[in-house]
Design a protein around this nucleic acid. Structure first.
Lengths: 191, 191
DNA sequence: GACGGAATCCTAGCACTGCTAGACAATCAA
DNA sequence: TTGATTGTCTAGCAGTGCTAGGATTCCGTC
């Protein structure tokens, strides 16, 4: 049985290697550069090996997305933990979120821009995704205001951040307004 | 000279045909289905003909995007023209915007999700794009609030709408909150 | 009406993509 | 040392965007 276990361990190691390499390649040269051939070459295995771990490229993107969700949740929690005032906490949250999107564009794309074959806002939504949303809600529900569903408020605030993140990265918003956008968003949306 | 003019006219007609067909195909089966081969077949010409009109697929997407920008501006202006109260106008704007994104997902993708090779927030930004932004600003600057730059406010409001639009279409927001999201967004952001 | 040149269009093909069948080799239990 | 089972690779499929070069049609001129 020990042999079998060792093999399973090796499998797991290689699976992590694939995901890490895909992510690395995507961060360096964008997701377009992440082809199955290039990815296989980097992990020093042949192409079909990828398909013994993942159904296809989509699933690899999905795996990166799940990693990203975990890290995003961590980043948000770390940033908000230091603040006590609810308003300051939301500002920190917004900054942390946008910072994450800017620092890890490929991961952010895997999460929200590309098709990673993941379910959202449903029962079978993977735990990391639910948890990332929960991390947002923890700080945001405090400033939702009376009579406003925390989930609804979180959705709206998150959507706003997402819009700012994507449009910023696409060069569709004026760079010099970056800080003012965060202030305006927090000032107006948070109660 | 008349012959030359006729040829130019025919060229223009075919160019419009290409754009219209690309858009139609994208609306029907998504942009993934818009391949140069399929597109060529639908317009009943060979593939290389496309490249005598456009540098490549990107430019075709860009052409659809420009069409979309014009229509989006129209839709927004039509919706807001009927309202007199600034707040009601902004609500109408938000609804019209999200409605446009929902009704013409392929066009919306061409505009904001795909790479159409267009410049944004710059001097060489095509007129339709500038005008679409202007259409938003016309109604939004009224509710920006004192001391808030109308351009900044428009960017933020627009980004929020964009976030809601994209996340909604990706199935990442709860459908039953759709109407409440618009209300919350307008209530909080508009002064 | 016939001709030479120019504009137009298509066939065929390139290098790439994601993905897979089937041959081969390494590894295991007996 | 076998025999079978895993594991891995080579080779190939059908598809992608894009292009070179030949064939055809059309045009203004004689």
């Amino acid at each position: 049985m020990s042999v079998h276990e060792r093999k399973q361990r090796e499998q797991a190691v290689r699976e992590r290697l694939i995901v890490a390499t895909a992510r690395e390649l995507a961060e360096q040269q964008g997701w377009d550069a992440v082809t199955t051939r290039r990815l296989a070459e980097r992990i020093e295995y042949s192409q079909p090996v990828l398909y013994s771990h993942f159904r296809g490229k989509r699933e690899i993107i999905g795996a990166v997305a799940l990693q990203g969700a975990t890290e995003l949740a961590e980043a948000v929690r770390a940033a908000t933990a230091a603040e006590t005032d609810p308003r300051a906490r939301v500002t920190a949250l917004a900054r942390a979120y946008l910072d994450f999107a800017a620092r890890h564009p490929a991961v952010y794309d895997a999460l929200f821009q590309l098709d990673g074959g993941l379910a959202y806002a449903q029962e079978d939504t993977p735990a990391p995704l639910k948890d990332a949303f929960a991390a947002l809600m923890e700080s945001l529900s405090e400033v939702a205001g009376d009579g406003v569903d925390p989930g609804l408020f979180t959705e709206v605030f998150w959507a706003s951040l997402h819009g700012v993140a994507t449009l910023t990265r696409a060069g569709r918003l004026l760079p010099e307004y970056a800080e003012l956008r965060v202030r305006l968003l927090v000032d107006r949306l948070a109660v």
